[in-house]
Design a binder for these strands. Structure first.
Length: 582
RNA sequence: GCCUCCGUAGCUCAGCGGAAGAGCACCUGGCUUCGAACCAGGUGGUCGCAGGUUCGAAUCCUGCCGGGGGCUCCA
């Protein structure tokens, strides 16, 4: 590993590992070791130093010492709130405690730290030399596109991510798209952090809506209007025209709808490990088994000729019917069996549902609790609605479905990468306005374009421009990275430092938009750097060593963009010339 | 009525316990130089309102106001 660790807290590592009074320092020593192992070490070095200072000051040091990179450069490179958090433990204002801590810190020599100061209500601000950022560059190279941002925090745990789960009675619409791409990105984030992930979708291929769908197809095939309450979209007529005269309308229509859905999902790069058929639960008696388990636990009762689940005992508003008085299951019952089955395959479950299913969460969690499962191991994520716009006007109609916009139309109009990226731009907690024209735009005001463009620019420098002047990037060990001193060069490295933490955060929060935000930040840093004459990679005024150092930076930034986009399922193009893109 | 999401710059939205942000729009400036499909600078905000918790609240809690969604022996 490439970190010349000058922090003398190493002494405390050796001395303190079995020294009970310095348990806190001990904990930080181990964290420091782990950080060195993972390559990004500066944060834990500072934490270990702060922990030592705190322990020496007699403080009960918190398990997670607050340490962040302030947005305002006046506040230094790193900033800690330790003195404020611990001020209750001692007499006097936080700034005084901070002063004592800083004094103790000064005694140690901490790698890359040039100065420590107290600011505001008691922040301890560290100023570092640029070397810590050059270390970042090396670690990015070592990780590469396939390793950068990835970690093992979820290792050893399995998780099932269920998304899309649409009725096989027609095409997917734009609302499905949000859940589909969100679920897929969450699955990728969890994979990137070491989880054993199953991507799964549930097919509601049983029940009354299938018969309604079949009746609608049959009616259209006979040249009639669909029955009352039937499916009215133009696609029904189109598909009916394709349907062979002797086909079973339900089975044929089922296959047709599934094929249609699969095509769009394929176009978006979404593939499932498991397509779970609701019917299969009937075949293997899983529904009856689940009911039996609930009965055995005395979680059901009969009333008014129906079978009820005591879901109110687990926080639901009301008890829920499992078997109607006419003897049929409600929608809930097979779904309970399905979730129980998923729990037999994975440690944890994530469901991605549309906002209209929000009210369903409490009863499903209650059902899991009634079965003896931990309801907290079922994480239901709800995606708020999407409104489609084009040039400021709402788009409501689709060619085939009549009343809703098909996902296929979105992909056809803006392309798969832009569709994915645009859906992922915002938190799924907020309603989204998806402007089709904007998402397809080939200008910097479109974040998709700006990000991919940044990657293409880097490729152009590294592959084309360097070759034109007969330069190739050598081994990073031979590069003098200390030549990278320009503000915009260092800014790229700062953003690259944040990447792995952002992936971890985005995975933990199931919030891909956090990673999107980071990728945009990196692209923005790259695009600014690119236009800066002081940062030119290929230039007559540059020494060979400077060119080499900058080529290493180009590759690191490229790795960051490609890895981030890769986890999001968005392409990192080598070129974006219009004629090549079309 | 109950549950839930949202309310931050003119617009679209991040930030969700630590020292108010981005893009667009608007104003100004920059192409004989790695792609100006670009870049830089500037204007612009009592973070819906009122209490509370905290050394510290856009961020947590409570109540209200405004908007979306849901409350079915539908799926």
């Amino acid at each position: 590993m490439l970190y010349p660790l000058s922090y003398e807290g190493w002494a405390s590592i050796r001395a303190g590992l079995d020294d009970a009074p310095t348990l806190a320092a001990n904990r930080y020593a181990w964290r420091l070791i782990a950080a060195i192992w993972e390559g990004l070490v500066i944060q834990e070095t500072l934490r270990a130093a702060l922990a030592d200072a705190g322990v020496a000051e007699g403080l009960d040091v918190p398990a997670e010492i607050g340490l962040e990179r302030p947005a305002n450069p006046d506040h230094g490179d790193w900033s800690s709130n330790l003195a404020m958090v611990c001020s209750k433990q001692v007499d006097g204002p936080p700034r005084d405690l901070a002063a004592r801590l800083v004094e103790r810190l000064g005694a140690a020599s901490i790698g890359h730290v040039r100065g420590v100061e107290i600011a505001g209500p008691g922040f301890i601000n560290f100023r570092l030399d640029d070397g810590w950022l050059h270390d970042v560059l090396v670690s990015v190279h070592e990780a590469g596109v396939d390793g950068y941002g990835r970690s093992a925090v979820g290792a050893g745990r399995s998780i099932n991510v269920e998304y899309v789960s649409a009725n096989p009675t027609g095409p997917l619409h734009a609302g499905h798209g949000r859940g589909a791409i969100y679920g897929d990105a969450v699955a990728s984030l969890l994979e990137a952090t070491g989880w054993d992930v199953t991507r799964e979708t549930y097919i509601n291929d049983r029940g009354t809506q299938m018969q309604t769908y079949a009746d609608s197809l049959t009616a259209r095939a006979a040249g009639e209007e669909p029955p009352e309450g039937g499916y009215m979209g133009q696609y029904i007529a189109d598909w009916a025209a394709e349907m062979p005269a002797d086909a079973d309308a339900l089975e044929w229509g089922y296959a047709r709808a599934l094929q249609d859905q699969r095509e769009v999902l394929d176009a978006l790069g979404i593939t499932f490990d498991v397509w779970f058929s609701e019917r299969s639960l009937v075949g293997d008696g899983a529904i009856e088994d689940a009911l039996e388990r609930l009965r055995a636990r005395e979680m059901v009762y009969e009333a008014d000729g129906a079978v009820w689940l005591r879901s109110t005992e687990f926080g639901d508003d009301k008890d829920r019917v499992l078997v109607r008085s006419n003897g049929e299951f409600t929608y809930l019952t097979p779904d309970i069996a399905y979730h129980a089955q998923k729990f037999s395959r994975s440690d944890e479950l994530i469901n991605v549902w549309g906002a209209d299913h929000h009210g369903y969460i409490a009863r499903m969690k209650a059902a899991m609790a009634a079965l003896g499962q931990n309801p907290d191991a079922l994480d239901v994520r709800v995606t708020q609605m999407v409104k489609l716009m084009r040039d400021g006007e709402e788009v409501k109609l689709s060619k085939r479905t009549g009343d809703i916009v098909e996902l296929r139309d979105v992909v056809d109009e803006v392309g798969a990468d832009a569709t994915r990226f645009t859906y992922l731009l915002q938190s799924v907690d907020s309603q989204q306005t998806f402007d089709l024209a904007h998402a397809a735009s080939k200008q910097m005001d479109n974040p998709v374009f700006g990000t991919q463009y940044a990657h293409a620019r880097l490729r152009r420098i590294a592959d084309v421009r360097a070759a034109e002047v007969g330069v190739t990037r050598g081994p990073i060990e031979d590069a003098d990275l200390s030549l990278l001193t320009q503000a915009r060069e260092l800014e790229i490295l700062r953003v690259l430092f944040d990447g792995p933490g952002m992936v971890e955060l985005a995975a933990a929060e199931r919030a891909p938009h956090r990673l999107v935000q980071w990728v945009r930040d990196l692209a923005s840093a790259v695009n600014s750097w690119y236009q800066d004459d002081e940062c030119r990679v290929i230039s007559e005024g540059n020494s060979a060593a400077l060119t080499q150092a900058r080529l290493q930076l180009v590759e690191a930034a490229r790795i960051g963009l490609a890895a981030g986009l890769g986890i999001l399922g968005v392409g990192a193009p080598e070129s974006m010339w219009m004629d090549e893109a079309e």
